[in-house]
């Protein structure tokens, strides 16, 4: 529905690539395509997929959020500490608290970008470190371990509901909400407008700074949700959880066709990008690829994806140039 058939075309390519990849793996390890395993792979990718969606919003508006993984870690630590101290707080309430905190942290990023007009890469590089530091201060450098967490805290994401784990259902819900946001709300439209042409957006009455603020806030809220899921899933919280994960999030976006230059990207693309990374990361160990080769392969995938994107954008650029010349005749 969003800019151009080229992109939809590109999402088909991604689906095709994922299917081919899965098929190749299945040739050697038929067990890989058992429904149970595929569900596990998807569930493994669930956190990455929702974070990629949050990051997509930010990138669409020509910004970037490097603090998402640190935000996740901070929110995860806070909910884990709350659970350890007050095991009676219902888990849904904890999740809401985590999302609220995440949104507040994201909003702080957004406010700095909006009101002080600072480049987002600098802002979030700073807040990334601040968030990590805050975890250390909060926990005094201690870990929150599995035995300190209540059973229901750890069990909720793994509970099975209608054949699928709850964490998968949560991800499906997040994807649905994002699809609604991007396709059916004025705010979703504003993210695209601000990204493809910030100046014209201003002249159309869209507040660019405010739109970016919302992108950061929503990305933060998703980070908060992911924080709980991460800590509950791995049953441990410490300063460095999800360290370096911000780059995987951005990689998922780029592979999914989200343009780093802003304005281009779809919900399906970001999710497929995450899924592709998830399949690669899950499959490579299965077929005995060394971890170092895995890193190289993941990196190569990202570079190839960027080349794809660059080609798409060059098409766009040519139109603009043609226009510029037409205007120069005045």
């Amino acid at each position: 529905m969003k800019p151009g058939t080229l992109l939809r075309h590109r999402e088909l390519i991604l689906v095709f690539a994922i299917v081919v990849l899965v098929a190749l793996i299945a040739l050697r390890f038929p067990a890989f395509i058992l429904p149970r395993n595929l569900i596990r792979v998807f569930d493994d990718t669930a956190i990455l997929a929702m974070l990629a969606l949050g990051q997509m919003l930010v990138i669409l508006t020509r910004c970037i959020d490097l603090s998402m993984a640190a935000n996740l870690a901070l929110c995860g630590m806070v909910v884990a500490m709350l659970n350890a101290a007050f095991p009676d707080i219902p888990i849904p309430l904890l999740i809401v608290a985590g999302m609220g905190l995440g949104a507040a942290l994201g909003a702080a990023n957004g406010l700095l970008v909006w009101k002080l007009d600072m480049p987002s890469i600098v802002v979030t590089l700073g807040t990334m470190t601040i968030f990590r530091g805050a975890i250390f201060l909060l926990a005094g450098g201690q870990w929150i371990n599995a035995h300190q967490m209540s059973d229901s805290f750890k069990a909720l994401p793994r509970n099975v509901f209608l054949e699928l784990p709850v964490s998968t259902w949560i991800t499906v819900a997040v994807i649905g909400l994002f699809a609604l946001l991007m396709g059916r709300t004025p705010l979703g439209r504003a993210f695209y407008a601000v990204g493809v042409n910030p100046t014209a957006s201003v002249y159309t009455g869209i507040d660019v700074g405010r739109t970016r603020f919302f992108a950061f806030t929503i990305a933060g809220m998703v980070s908060g949700l992911a924080g709980y899921l991460w800590v509950a899933r791995y049953a441990v919280a410490y300063v460095d959880i999800a360290g370096g994960f911000e780059l995987s999030i951005i990689a998922a976006c780029v592979i999914g066709g989200v343009s780093i230059a802003g304005g281009i990207g779809t919900v399906a693309g970001a999710v497929l990008g995450a899924l592709f990374l998830g399949v690669v990361n899950n499959a490579l160990p299965v077929i005995n690829v060394s971890p170092f080769a895995q890193m190289a392969i993941s990196g190569a995938v990202i570079v190839i994806a960027v080349i794809f994107n660059a080609r798409n954008e060059r098409k766009r650029g040519r139109i603009i140039l043609k226009k510029a010349e037409a205007e120069a005749r005045a």
Binding site: P3, R189, Y192, A193, G195, V196, N197, T199, A200, S201, V202, Y203, T204, G205, I206, G263, I264, R316, I319, I320, K323, A324, E327
Partner: peptide, 18 residues
């Protein structure tokens, strides 16, 4: 091109944007 039309968005979305 820079201030008026939101190039990159389809025609109908440009018209409905405000």
């Amino acid at each position: 091109g820079r201030q008026g039309a939101v190039i990159g968005l389809p025609i109908f979305q440009n018209i409905s944007l405000p």
